[in-house]
Simulated scan of single mutants.
Amino acid sequence: MKFFQFLLCLTVSLFILPQAQADELVHFDSAVVKPSPFLERKAKEQGEVPPVPQATPLIGYLTRPQGDGPFPAVVLMHGCGGIHPHVRDVWPERLVSWGYVTLVVDSFTTRNIENSCKTYLPDRVFDAYGALDFLTKSGFVDASRVALMGFSAGGIATLEATKIEGNEQFMDEKFKAAVAYYPVCAPHESDATVPTLILNGDLDDWSPAERCRQRIANLSGKGPPVELHIYPGARHDFDDEAMTKPKTVFGHVEEYNAAAAEQSIASVQAFLKAYVGK
């Protein structure tokens, strides 16, 4: 009898415990920059039609906690090699357990791109804002509490999307915070528009930590806070458990580092809680 009572209690508890809803394939468009009033007026004066910007159809993977919300959210941008499992599955599961909706943006499939490791794809900034626009219209996301988080090339896009004098100024919706894992920093870039967390390994030969140190040193001190965490002994992809054995990709070493991963995850959780809230 006690055994059956135990089973009954276990079954009930499984239904009561909050569960993340399974990820869903969603479709949305990249954001576009509309012609400025000056360009529209100039075209009209010259009897021309201003060019109409074309959005790029995109797909993404949406995961959210149970309930109606509204929830805070995180848009995730993958690296130059495409969507790896730690971005596609591990980070969304982790973030949802913290109470965030997640949307992993696939920048390659609809563009028929295999990778962008030898080139830079500036359109990814607009992908991020297209994802933000999708989330703000979902009905279950708090539009004032959405962070942008990117890995490697996705980290570059994250920093580009949240810099002063960047394309953010042309967007109606804004991100609340930004997290960039092992990006290639632009040392002389302008200030950030939102609180930003940058995470690098000191042995990263793909995304040198020194460039991010220079970026921090060149900030005006008048913008939102930008935190830089550099982990000793850590290489590129240090948070990806699939890289337990070092792997050379395009001449660069990628390797999981348990200590750096654990510390960075704790830093991300604290950072999001402070600036996005949960």
Rank of each mutant, 00 (worst) to 15 (best):
D205H: 04
P232D: 11
F134L: 11
A20F: 11
L58P: 08
P85M: 02
T248S: 01
R124D: 12
A261C: 07
A31G: 08
W98T: 10
E45A: 15
A266I: 12
G82I: 01
K44Q: 15
T196C: 04
Q169C: 07
L76V: 08
Y256L: 01
W98F: 11
K176W: 01
V226T: 06
A217K: 12
Q5R: 15
R111L: 07
A209Q: 06
D237Y: 11
F28K: 02
F71G: 05
W206H: 06
S30P: 06
K42R: 15
L272P: 01
V146I: 08
D205T: 06
H84Y: 09
V87A: 04
P37H: 10
W91G: 00
G60P: 09
G223C: 02
V146C: 03
S116C: 09
I265H: 14
N115G: 08
R64Y: 10
Q19R: 15
W206M: 06
D123C: 06
S220A: 09
V104K: 01
L8K: 14
L39P: 11
G221H: 04
Y100V: 10
D29A: 08
A192H: 07
D133K: 15
P187W: 06
L159I: 09
K273W: 04
P70S: 07
D204W: 04
I156G: 00
R235S: 13
I230H: 05
P50G: 07
W206D: 05
I198E: 04
C9G: 12
Y182I: 02
G154K: 04
K2T: 15
A128C: 08
A43V: 12
P53H: 11
N218P: 10
A261T: 07
K247F: 03
L10C: 11
Y182P: 01
L7Y: 11
